[in-house]
């Protein structure tokens, strides 16, 4: 009886200790992704998760949601640890999110927003020609797919509310390209990087669209962490990402993303977005 009781206590203790050790060491790092990268690529995410997990010594769990806002909310409330978000939510959540890394596209941590129309439309030269059309945005929290076109229209003295007959969100840059290609929308604003990547992956789709104009350069959608993420882990994740282009597997994965690599990145990269965000906010706040 005494022996059995003692054995049970020891077993319980061992189980508790083992559980704690296993729990702390192997709890996956939850990585939120948005439509800033190409979606519907489960196979790629699995490979990338395995690669990052091996490098980091910790499993990676990708978390996907329908909108930028949802992923942002998960990050802000620490339900996920890191996330690949857009520059616009990043500047709006300054102080709550920490910058982990910025991707390099064509050698630069920058990208553009493209105004696109169906290839059959050879007439449109600027937003001014789009009066009375149906326009596709990607996500209300997107920089290239919403904020930049808002800014460009205001700059030209136009207002989206008067200009278009109707607007809608596709919730993904890829779908904005599709919506314009099939003629559901007569124009749309997309992430230039996504458009270029699609040109590689699905040339037939891209051939049905035409770029009307390219915007100024803005900070590429960064990878950020919740404010409470431990500095060591933050640094470790940043280093693993930055060193991806140093080995073959990492290079292959980057190639699949049509990226050159990751750099630590400066917050000042996103000053451009910050400025247009303020401009647009101020404009509508004044009600002019």
């Amino acid at each position: 009886m005494g022996v059995l009781l003692r054995a049970l206590v020891v077993l319980a203790l061992l189980l508790t200790l083992a559980g704690r050790t296993w729990g702390t060491e192997t709890a996956p790092l939850r990585f939120g992704t948005t439509a800033v990268i190409l979606q519907d690529r489960a196979e790629f995410l699995t490979k990338w998760a395995r690669y990052l997990g091996e490098r980091l010594g910790r499993p990676i769990q990708f978390v996907q949601r329908g909108s930028y806002a949802e992923v942002g909310e998960l990050l802000s409330t620490s339900q996920i640890d890191i996330a690949w978000v857009c520059g616009a939510p990043y500047v709006r959540n300054r102080g709550r999110w920490q910058l982990v890394a910025v991707p390099l596209h064509q050698g630069k941590p920058l990208y553009q927003s493209y105004l696109i129309v169906p290839a059959s439309d050879t007439r449109t030269k600027s937003y001014r020609d789009l009066e009375g059309t149906v326009f596709a945005y990607s996500d209300p929290d997107s920089n290239s797919g919403y904020l930049v076109p808002q800014f460009q229209m205001l700059e030209q003295g136009l207002r989206a509310g008067n200009l278009f007959r109707k607007t809608f969100f596709t919730w993904a840059h890829q779908d904005t390209v599709k919506a314009v290609a099939v003629g559901l929308a007569q124009a749309g604003a997309v992430d230039g990087y996504i458009w270029e990547a699609l040109a590689d992956i699905d040339p037939a789709l891209i051939a049905r669209t035409r770029i009307v104009s390219r915007s100024a350069w803005y900070g590429f959608p960064p990878i950020v962490a919740r404010a409470s993420l431990e500095p060591d882990l933050l640094k470790a994740v940043g280093e693993v990402l930055a060193s991806m282009n140093a080995d073959a597997r990492g290079k292959e994965l980057l190639n699949q993303m049509r990226l050159d690599g990751f750099v630590p990145g400066e917050d000042s990269l996103f000053d451009g977005i910050r400025q247009i965000n303020q401009f647009v906010n101020k404009h509508y706040a004044q009600g002019s």
């Binding site: 169906p118 059959s120 149906v134 007959r165 109707k166 099939v182 003629g183 559901l184 929308a185 007569q186």
Partner: peptide, 8 residues
């Protein structure tokens, strides 16, 4: 077929 039957 949005091209044949455009929105609105």
């Amino acid at each position: 077929e949005p091209e044949r039957f455009p929105v609105l």
